[in-house]
Simulated scan of single mutants.
Amino acid sequence: MSEKSLKWATLGTGVIAHELAQALQGLGGNLYSVANRTYEKGLAFADQYGIQKVYREIDEVFADDEVDIIYISTPHNTHINFLRKALAAGKHVLCEKSITLNSAELEEAIQLAEEKGLVLAEAMTIYHMPIYRQLKDVVDSGKLGPLKMIQMNFGSYKDYDMTNRFFNRELAGGALLDIGVYALSFVRWFMSSCPQNILSQVQFAPTGVDEQVGILLTNQEGEMATISLSLHAKQPKRGMLAYDKAYIELYEYPRGQKAVITYTEDGHQEVIETGDTKDALRYEVLDMERAVAGNDNQMYLAYSRDVMEMMTKLRSDWGLTYPEEEEERGS
């Protein structure tokens, strides 16, 4: 079990909520409660995992004094309203990516968390999987030399149904917030500083959201990154990091567990394999509980902030907004 008996609530009962429940059970605990828009789905979820409390109304989770941490796994465009309520109620929050729609929303949430002395974090697996931390140690040792270039590919093949969430503007769909957030988080994890020069090309789906994207990034150290994203053309989920003395290849990110380092001078390879893809949520839970206990905060909210700034800049360049943002500006 965890270092301290913290009580977790899930807000949402989708795929990630199931993984969260399984992760907590794997650690010898269980979810304390479940909140969901549809009460019947909440009941079914609770029955599956032996969860003792189901709320009839979502807002009841915020008023429950027993809850320590809320995991929010609802659609992107609902996050900020739930974050406001959870943080105002004194709950620590682990929020599914993308943590908010834009930088303004994230800054509001960060300020609320700081005022209340709470841990706020994005459930970004790249910041928690052992493979990324071990690779960071290798890089920081200096044996690979300085970083020169990062290349990221993430292509999904989603049914070309404009009503599903991936293409639905009403649900904050689009490649950037759904899969691009992983690529940008990978880039930020390895880059020395946040990229300031951002160029891009975008192709829109019939609904007006970004379907296919190419991004070029450069930071003040001269490190560069290229990213290609697609929601309707499969690509290998591949990350490549080119250093002065070697390059690193990592496949099947974000939940990677194996990387290959190829050294430039003689071509010899070093294989690093650590962690387990299926334990992705377990790593996030353990890091979150350590942070809440005040032992070691490794939730990397500053990186989430940088990534959100990049995504906000990109969508601004494209002129892509979501209904909630348009309402905010109009009010």
Results as ranks from 00 to 15, higher is better:
M149D: 10
P130T: 06
D137K: 15
A205P: 06
Y322P: 01
E108S: 12
R84K: 13
K313N: 06
Q111C: 09
R133L: 07
A293S: 15
K148Y: 01
T207M: 11
E170K: 08
G155Y: 05
E3I: 15
T100F: 06
T218W: 02
L118I: 10
Y300H: 11
K237T: 13
A44C: 02
G267N: 15
N297V: 15
L87H: 10
N30A: 15
S200K: 12
E57Y: 08
E115F: 05
K4E: 14
E324W: 06
R188D: 02
Q203V: 10
E326F: 01
S73Q: 10
S230A: 10
S5E: 09
V292F: 01
L144E: 08
A175D: 08
P206I: 12
K136N: 01
I58W: 05
Y55R: 06
E108T: 15
P323M: 06
I150R: 00
A183P: 00
C95Y: 02
S304T: 12
M162L: 12
A21M: 03
T264I: 12
A302M: 08
L286V: 15
T312G: 05
E170N: 08
S73C: 14
D287P: 03
M191R: 03
I70F: 09
L144V: 05
N102W: 00
D306H: 08
K258F: 01
G12V: 10
A121W: 07
M299E: 11
D210G: 10
E327T: 07
A225S: 07
R282E: 10
A63P: 04
R315M: 14
E108P: 14
V260H: 07
G319C: 04
G174E: 01
K158C: 08
V61Y: 02
A86D: 05
S73G: 14
S193L: 00
R169Q: 05
G319Q: 04
E122T: 09
L314H: 00
Q220M: 12
M124L: 05
N197E: 12
K116Y: 01
V67K: 09
M1E: 14
K258Q: 13
I272W: 11
M310D: 00
V93W: 02
F62V: 06
P146A: 04
